[in-house]
């Protein structure tokens, strides 16, 4: 295709991405280096019968004017990144000096909001992803062994947890594990503790969120693996059988190697999607026990006072995290392209 024709064809989509994805990234980076203006304080002298008294007050008009003139705020450089709510360099230095052992040091760090969110996000991403791969593969193998007629309805029911909105899916589960819901009540009977509440303890909340994550994403891995199983070379499988391979050996030596490229694909998609975990924390009302990077940004942006600068700094750090996750994939894609 000629350069000029190509240009006109991709112009609308590139313009959309430039204006609403690339420029906002620039805007986020800029915003993260500005803090909101302080209120303008003036000193007034009020003189009465008992002499003069100096007092300070907030000059509302001047404050508003300043905020309207420079809506970004005042330039503070990297201050927002290093403050307590983000990378907290001072607090970490103090904790390193004062804490007796590594355990205490880590405990101190996990009390800082940014590291708490980071810890949960990483745990969620790296626990859910392998579980999704294993569960998805098992379902695919099982579905592949049932009669053709039953496969359609099975796939339909299996797709539901993934297709439904995450906020709603997690809400439905949340109502069921509620202490008064059916699963919650069942668990209470099983454990023998009538006061057991999944919402009240941090480890149980984490487990609940991870279970939700696996439930939500397993169908995706299942569908991709199932499609892969349909393309397993029959000849290889038959010759393996003639050579006396058991069913387990067939899976191990024929099917699994065939599915490796698909595993890379699912892993990549899952890492990207699990890293942005957000809706279930809103639905499960779990922010007291678990926050993620996305939830941290959402929390800053919502509410009465919108903390734009703080949210922007967290956003930049999150984008950096995504970039680190993606690097191996990008390097590989580039190598493939360069070889061609």
């Amino acid at each position: 295709m000629k350069h000029k024709t190509f240009f006109w064809f991709v112009l609308p989509t590139s313009l959309a991405m430039l204006l609403f994805i690339a420029l906002p990234i620039v805007s986020v980076i800029t915003q993260s280096m500005y803090a909101p203006h302080k209120q303008v304080i003036v000193e007034v002298e009020s003189c009465g019968v008992f002499g003069c008294k100096k007092s300070t007050m907030i000059d509302q008009d001047a404050t508003r004017e300043l905020r309207e003139a420079e809506p970004l705020g005042r330039f503070v450089g990297a201050d927002i990144y290093t403050n307590r709510n983000h990378l907290a360099s001072n607090e970490i230095a103090v904790a390193w000096e004062s804490s007796a052992g590594l355990g205490e040091f880590l405990g101190d760090i996990l009390n800082l909001p940014f590291y708490r969110a980071l810890a949960f996000t990483l745990t969620f991403t790296f626990v859910v992803t392998p579980l999704v791969l294993v569960l998805g593969f098992t379902i695919a193998v099982a579905v592949n062994s049932i009669p053709q007629m039953l496969r359609g309805p099975t796939i339909f029911l299996s797709l539901l947890p993934m297709i439904i909105n995450p906020l709603i899916g997690s809400l439905i589960l949340f109502w069921m594990v509620d202490a008064r819901g059916i699963v919650g009540a069942l668990l209470q009977t099983a454990v023998g503790d009538p006061n057991l509440s999944m919402k009240a303890s941090t480890p149980l909340t984490w487990v609940m969120l991870i279970v939700y994550g696996v439930w939500h994403s397993a169908p995706f891995a299942f569908v991709v693996y199932y499609a892969g199983l349909q393309t397993v070379p029959k000849d290889t499988l038959e010759s393996a059988m003639i050579d006396g391979a058991s069913r387990w050996e067939q899976i191990r030596y024929v099917i699994v190697p065939h599915l490796i490229p698909l595993t890379t694909f699912i892993t990549l998609m899952q890492l990207m999607d699990n890293f942005r975990v957000f809706e279930p924390i809103v639905s499960f009302n779990a922010s007291a026990h678990a926050t993620s990077l996305s939830y941290f940004i959402y929390d800053d942006l919502g509410g009465e006072t919108r903390l734009l600068s703080s949210a922007a700094a967290t956003s930049v750090l999150t984008i950096a995290g995504v970039a680190i996750l993606l690097t191996p994939v990008l390097v590989r894609t580039w190598r493939d392209f360069a070889r061609r």
Binding site: M272, R306, L308, A311, S315
Partner: peptide
């Protein structure tokens, strides 16, 4: 486009608001 696809949408929202 792949890099943009990987970014959580909420990170962009803080750039839109102002």
């Amino acid at each position: 486009a792949l890099i943009f696809r990987a970014m959580p949408p909420i990170t962009l929202v803080s750039g839109y608001l102002l």
